[in-house]
């Protein structure tokens, strides 16, 4: 079976580093992007099974990147990550079928379960 790929998007290089190690340890492939714009390009290139997208990022923030990806790939599985939830904008992306708002920090066991549940399902919106 082909390895399932997960796109990780965050402007903190260390977070990308440890998160990608966690994800490869869990048996998935990791693709990295450090802002929303890179995330859109990486998504188009790799069509990952799941995306973890930080909200607050330079150049293009997570919410805008979400809508750009969603407009081209209506079935994209996207989980938003945040340190401090902007609930108004979260409602906006939730109504466009974002899967979950993952608040930092998270127990890895929870992350693992979240991936297991959503990596193969297809969002239809």
């Amino acid at each position: 079976m082909e390895k399932q790929n997960i796109l990780l998007v965050d402007d903190d290089a260390d977070l990308l580093k440890v998160m990608s190690e966690v994800i490869t340890t869990l048996g998935y492939g990791a693709i990295l992007a450090s802002n929303g714009q890179e995330a859109v390009l990486q998504f188009e290139k790799h069509i990952p099974n799941l995306v973890f997208m930080d909200v607050k990022m330079p150049i293009l923030d997570g919410f805008d990147a979400f809508f750009r990806i969603r407009s081209k790939f209506p079935n994209a599985n996207i989980i938003m990550m945040t340190g401090f939830a902007d609930h108004a904008r979260w409602k906006e992306v939730k109504s466009a079928c974002a899967i979950y708002l993952l608040e930092k920090p998270w127990p890895t066991e929870f992350l693992s379960e979240l991936i297991r549940r959503h990596v193969t399902t297809k969002v239809s919106c």
Binding site: D10, D12, D14, L15, V18, M19, E21, V22, T25, K56, T82, G83, F84, E103, K104, P105, W106, P107, T108
Partner: peptide, 21 residues
């Protein structure tokens, strides 16, 4: 404090993930 919280939560996520690794 919301600014500080946001700025602290990312490093905490890094520490927690590194601990797990």
């Amino acid at each position: 404090s919301s600014q500080i919280a946001h700025d602290l939560r990312s490093p905490l996520a890094i520490i927690e993930s590194a601990l797990w690794l």
